[in-house]
Design a protein around this nucleic acid. Structure first.
Length: 441
RNA sequence: GGAGAGAUGGCCGAGUGGUCGAAGGCGCACGCCUGGAAAGUGUGUAGGCGGGGAACCGUCUCAAGGGUUCGAAUCCCUUUCUCUCCGCCA
């Protein structure tokens, strides 16, 4: 949620920054008009309340002095204010609600270094704050070479009997998969490895959060009110709970409605959880294989920071996610998303795209976003800065990384000509030392 | 699911209709004391919103929402959450 006072002070900048975004429902002048109505309502109701309070105080004094006649006079006077106060409070509530609901559907403002563009074609390669294409080529794993035509993950998986889409369809419909024996084990190994890496090497606290959350949490991390169609809900009592679409929701909302001291920051959390996405808008995309599923596992990183620390933390989190790719030896590139491709709550997003030789293309495997104080304001999560002032916390989230897609990437990048999958060294301890699975015995 | 108890400031905790945003304590900040520290001691210390250049003023907030009343932390209703006991349960 954006700050109306900032918008009022910087209307031109607001309109300019929102230009690159899709579906921006309000201009600065719309919002200022809504806010002006709100302020007028406040002024009028508070004036009446001040009168009432002053008179009531006098009534108390008169009663204490046993001056019943004077008390009666004053009481009659207050009675005449009652109606106006009642109506004024309603007007004020409506005006507050109008502003709030307008602000809730407004996307975050891109930072100034974010490229302006309409879709993924306008994303820009990113090599780190001091990096270049040359340094990246040296530090990132190279693209693997194959002496045969590399196959796609589902061909490999079905051939080794470890990936069963037909059984999944009978159980649950499309966009589910059943993993079996060695592939099930490998999927688990990848998740454990990544979680351990972030906990042991990168300073994150392991969290095992609820997978069902309330609407309030979803407002906090901006899945609601706009993106309800992407979520699965389940009835609960008279209401409902949502299955988390990402552990960003529970991890970030850990700090909701709280006041943190500066020295408690940053708070770095990681979790390995299933994620559930209805993906209502993506019918027909990536229907083959397990690239796009209704349910998948993901290791998520979340960091809660002060305003000053947010941007550095963004680079750290990206490098933590890149470390997964490097340790697994997976070739990848990093893209800085353009304004049109960036998610609703982000001020800047880096995507890590892994090379998939079977598909002969790069595919997103991690998305690392800096949200500024956008979610902090929605969650009412604050901290005291060095001057003791209350400020909304800054939040960041990143996949570290998607487990299902990492499985795909390991399979396609480590495939052998006989259909076997070599196990990357980092995963071997999680595979009881095995160096390959599948293929001809 | 049944029965009961509870929710007050950063934390603990008092407050059952009237100048209560709220005693007291802890914590924190600043000062005194000290060679320095601890102890002791003094002062200060909620947030949101609105008005104002500022000092400051107004308003709202004692889980949330509604009601009674001239006036509610305090009385009534609803909801949420927490705890205890019972039942059920991985």
């Amino acid at each position: 949620m954006l700050d109306i006072n900032w918008i009022k002070a910087n209307p031109a900048a607001f309109d300019m920054l929102q230009k690159g975004r899709k579906n921006v429902p309000f201009s600065a002048s719309d919002l200022i008009a809504i806010d002006d109505r709100r302020r007028a309502a406040i002024l009028s109701v508070e004036d009446a309340q001040a009168k009432r309070n002053a008179l009531s105080k006098d009534i108390g004094i008169a009663k204490a002095q046993k001056d019943e006649a004077r008390a009666a006079t004053l009481m009659a006077e207050v009675a005449s204010l009652k109606d106006a106060i009642q109506k004024g409070e309603e007007t004020r509530r409506d005006a507050d609600e109008a502003l709030r609901s307008a602000l809730l559907v407004l996307p975050n403002l891109p930072l100034s270094d974010v490229p302006v563009g309409s879709d993924e074609a306008d994303n820009a390669p990113y090599f780190g704050p001091n990096g270049s294409a040359e340094t990246a080529a040296k530090t990132r794993p190279p693209k693997p070479a194959f002496g045969f035509a590399p196959r796609e993950h589902y061909e490999l998986g079905e051939a080794m009997g470890g990936m069963d889409f037909e059984a999944a369809a009978r159980l649950s419909g499309s966009r589910f998969v059943v993993l079996k024996h060695d592939l099930a084990r490998l999927e688990r190994a990848i998740g454990q490895f990544m979680l351990d890496l972030h906990v042991e090497q990168h300073g994150y606290t392991e969290i095992n959060p609820p997978l069902l959350v309330r609407d309030d949490a979803l407002y906090g991390t901006n899945q609601l009110p706009k993106f309800a169609d992407d979520l699965f809900f389940t009835p609960h009592g008279d209401g409902r709970l949502a299955l988390i679409p990402t552990a960003e929701v529970p991890l970030t909302n850990m700090v909701r409605e709280s006041i943190l001291s500066l020295d408690a920051l940053p708070i770095r959390m990681t979790a390995l959880t299933p994620c559930f996405r209805s993906e209502a808008g993506s019918a027909g995309r990536d229907t083959r294989g397990m690239l796009r599923q209704h349910q998948f596992n993901k290791v998520e990183m979340v960091s809660i920071t002060s305003a000053e620390a947010g941007e550095d933390e963004h680079e750290k989190m990206l490098s933590d996610a890149e470390d997964v790719m490097k340790t697994l030896g997976l070739h990848y590139r990093v893209m800085k998303l353009c304004t049109g491709d960036m998610g609703f709550g982000a001020r800047r997003t880096y995507d890590i795209e892994v090379w998939l030789p079977g598909q002969d293309t790069y595919r997103e495997i991690s998305s690392v976003s800096y949200c500024g104080d956008f979610q902090g304001r929605r969650m009412d999560a604050r901290y005291r800065d060095a001057d003791g002032k209350m400020r909304p916390v800054h939040t960041l989230n990143g996949s570290g990384v998607a487990v299902g897609r990492a499985l795909i990437a390991v399979m396609e990048n480590y495939q052998q000509d006989d259909g076997a999958i070599a196990i990357p060294a980092a995963l071997q301890p999680y595979m009881r030392g095995r160096t390959r699975i599948g293929g001809r015995p």
